[in-house]
Design a protein around this nucleic acid. Sequence first.
DNA 1: AAGTGGTCTAGACCACCTA
DNA 2: AGGTGGTCTAGACCACTTA
Lengths: 237, 237
Amino acid sequence: MKNKYIVIYNDLVQMIQHGEFMSGDTLPSEHELSDQFSTSRETIRKALNLLSQNGYIQKVRGKGSVVLDHNKFEFPVSGLTSFKELSDQLGQDSKTHVHEVFVESANNKLRERLNCSKEVKIWKVSRSREINGERIILDKDFIREDIVPSITKSIAENSIYEYIENELGLEISFAKKEILVEPVTEEDEKYLDVEGHTQMVVIRSFVYLADATLFQFTESRHRPDKFQFVDFARRTK
Amino acid sequence: MKNKYIVIYNDLVQMIQHGEFMSGDTLPSEHELSDQFSTSRETIRKALNLLSQNGYIQKVRGKGSVVLDHNKFEFPVSGLTSFKELSDQLGQDSKTHVHEVFVESANNKLRERLNCSKEVKIWKVSRSREINGERIILDKDFIREDIVPSITKSIAENSIYEYIENELGLEISFAKKEILVEPVTEEDEKYLDVEGHTQMVVIRSFVYLADATLFQFTESRHRPDKFQFVDFARRTK
DNA sequence: AAGTGGTCTAGACCACCTA
DNA sequence: AGGTGGTCTAGACCACTTA
């Protein structure tokens, strides 16, 4: 919270959320804002770019920074949000069942996916997620043991991300995901309430730390009737 | 192509794609680059931020800009890519069948979705997409007639986006999408080769122009076995 | 200690929109 | 014409990594 432009960003988000600027309004101009916050214009511009990236405003040359309708831009499942953050946010009655937590040598496919040598061992964690009494998500995590040396059942029951960031002090910074639809497997039927569904939505993610090392591969299998993904795509030219 | 930082960005992308920097290498430092391109450091930083946003590099404080494995970061369906761009890119044998092109007053639901008044009329365009001999995508577009006054069958057969950007000179700038799985409809069965599938992947998009006006709502229905979505999520704090 | 990227400044000129 | 955001500069200091 010490960076000036982040403080300004947070201030402006607060103001927009408290209705001080309505959808369609323009914010004060960059010159005005740099006076108000007694900072340089470039710093204001950094804050405004953050607002823009996060869907709060759209900058229009010659006109100003137009406030968008933020109700249309909520992000229930976008980005890197973990299951725990997500269910906390939605205030849902959720539970995690841990099925497997163990270390193993990686086979070829996994070594290729995690981009690591034969010597590196891999944590395998399998969990199902229950929401409002139904087990609808199966998460299979593969995590490099040289980066995360210890995972216990109780860590897996809470949040592995929280443990990695808060306890180990590692910073998760970006992920590449792909979303597909695939047939239900025996494992799905064993651990989930598939309710007659024959297909599952599968999200495969490659997760990277701030120093650009790939440390985790995750397969997250969702029952299709409960799946939703929201994406906000701004064109970069 | 006139902006300095975009020229530098394109140069660096070229160099990375031509293998002058390998995955894991670090780029020259920002100071070196500003000498090489004889520009200021802030301009170099703009170019590097673009590289970072597009998954080419990861900046690490104290170390440098690490080149990522770009093979892992191709974006076949991400962002705002239109069907035409996409199929051109993949070099696939593709065809578009236009089923409906007409103007109508909007009903309540559509007026709410497009955020417009009773007076505004709406273009309705329905098209199916055939790839390698199979009709697998049904696109239903709803476009504000006050913004796009004329759409013909031949425009719909090519690319509506191309027409809007090149002929009308409007700039499409961002979109909010949601992805869901829903049961097959009669319309799907009429226009697509559903091949016994009972569910479809549905992408609903709200598309905005550069001046922040919402001008189009699209429902894109994909046969699940042919659906793929790729997402690159960088954490913003 | 030297080098890296991250932040911040106080200017400048430009392209675009609205009156 | 005056205001807006977009680009660019040439500095400065800081936090972090590595040797």
